[in-house]
Computed example of a mutant assay.
Amino acid sequence: MSEVIKNRYDFVVLFDVENGNPNGDPDSGNMPRVDAETQLGLITDVCIKRKIRNYVEMVKDDSTGYRIYIKSHAVLNKNDEEAYAALGVSVDKVAEQKKKDTDIDLKIRDWMCANFYDIRAFGAVMTTFTKAKLNCGQVRGPVQIGFAKSVEPVVPQEITITRVAITTEKDAENKNNEMGSKYIVPYGLYRCEGFVSANLARKTTGFTEDDLNLLWDAIYNMFENDHSAARGKMAVRKLIIFKHDSELGNAPSHKLFDLVSVSRKDADTSAPARSYEDYEISVKDDQIPNGVSIIIRD
């Protein structure tokens, strides 16, 4: 692998959804998440990280150092047991072994970081409260992502759908089709902000330059191989990366984020936006602080 990253990064991602449900809320019948007070659409950090994990898993195909810890149908205890087995640590006698080797906990944690990309990036709580009492530690990852929020309020709509196939023979005697429904957002442009800490990468997980480049690719392409009828048409429109010259950074994150603004091209906003072309994205690159450079992918 390449060397551990040495620069702090902050980034802004702009993506949109058309006629789809970007992140259903199980507490509200799976309708698109919204802020109850502002009606701005919301997408959780967990949802976005799921897309990134799926992309890495697809591209790397469980190659050495790029496995995914949190994935569909994964049994976490089995992954934890691998670390113990690889280091020759007995689950039943780990307390005795720690007396001889006080660094066992760190070795187990480092093994997990080295083998699982998402632990190296996002961190993880690797303690399971089972009879096995497996404990691979807790890791705070260098890559942190906030909730995505729509630029303008969204109006979730319930669409009634029909199916000509009938579920049972008994139902077929009384009806010719089945009724159902799905929720959509007609259009929404969402903004998400994130952070990459070189300090945590160096001290804890060993997140490398290769890992970082893979992260940018995963964010930029996270919807390209994740299409479904439920999510409609989703696409990343712009990825704006602020690179600091130092490990701890040269400017506060919020001041860099304030340099990115999204506005409607038409001053009359009474009509709802229905396209990315309805918006104008501006970056005040002439106000970027010393020690910070900008990279834009669109």
Results as ranks from 00 to 15, higher is better:
residue 2 S to W: 01
residue 87 L to P: 01
residue 160 T to D: 08
residue 286 D to A: 13
residue 134 L to K: 13
residue 226 D to E: 09
residue 224 E to M: 01
residue 36 A to W: 13
residue 250 N to M: 07
residue 151 V to A: 04
residue 244 H to C: 10
residue 7 N to H: 09
residue 121 A to L: 09
residue 218 A to F: 05
residue 52 I to R: 07
residue 78 K to E: 13
residue 135 N to D: 15
residue 220 Y to N: 06
residue 67 R to W: 00
residue 103 D to L: 12
residue 194 G to A: 10
residue 14 L to N: 04
residue 124 A to Q: 11
residue 137 G to M: 03
residue 160 T to A: 11
residue 215 L to D: 07
residue 193 E to V: 15
residue 236 V to C: 06
residue 290 N to F: 12
residue 114 A to S: 05
residue 1 M to P: 00
residue 292 V to S: 14
residue 55 Y to D: 08
residue 268 D to R: 12
residue 207 F to S: 00
residue 173 E to L: 05
residue 117 Y to D: 02
residue 55 Y to K: 09
residue 6 K to H: 02
residue 282 S to Y: 10
residue 294 I to D: 05
residue 103 D to M: 13
residue 126 M to D: 12
residue 286 D to R: 15
residue 6 K to I: 10
residue 29 G to S: 03
residue 192 C to Q: 15
residue 253 S to H: 09
residue 1 M to S: 03
residue 88 G to Y: 06
residue 208 T to M: 03
residue 245 D to F: 12
residue 228 S to W: 01
residue 264 R to C: 06
residue 39 Q to S: 14
residue 209 E to C: 02
residue 82 E to K: 07
residue 257 F to Q: 02
residue 132 A to N: 13
residue 261 S to M: 08
residue 97 Q to T: 11
residue 76 L to A: 12
residue 9 Y to N: 04
residue 52 I to H: 08
residue 291 G to W: 09
residue 70 I to Y: 13
residue 227 H to A: 14
residue 98 K to N: 03
residue 155 V to C: 08
residue 69 Y to T: 01
residue 230 A to P: 03
residue 254 H to I: 10
residue 28 S to K: 09
residue 115 N to K: 01
residue 144 Q to V: 13
residue 197 S to M: 07
residue 259 L to K: 08
residue 55 Y to H: 10
residue 171 D to C: 03
residue 176 N to S: 00
residue 36 A to K: 12
residue 78 K to S: 15
residue 231 R to Q: 02
residue 197 S to F: 07
residue 239 L to G: 04
residue 266 D to P: 05
residue 127 T to A: 13
residue 27 D to Y: 05
residue 268 D to T: 13
residue 11 F to Q: 04
residue 184 I to F: 06
residue 82 E to P: 04
residue 260 V to W: 03
residue 200 L to F: 04
residue 19 N to F: 14
residue 202 R to L: 08
residue 270 S to F: 14
residue 118 D to K: 11
residue 229 A to D: 07
residue 180 G to H: 00
residue 182 K to V: 04
residue 120 R to D: 02
residue 51 K to W: 11
residue 188 G to M: 08
residue 75 V to Q: 07
residue 255 K to P: 00
residue 26 P to C: 09
residue 87 L to H: 03
residue 103 D to Y: 14
residue 114 A to I: 01
residue 61 D to M: 02
residue 92 D to C: 05
residue 202 R to T: 15
residue 22 P to R: 08
residue 272 P to I: 14
residue 2 S to Q: 01
residue 245 D to H: 11
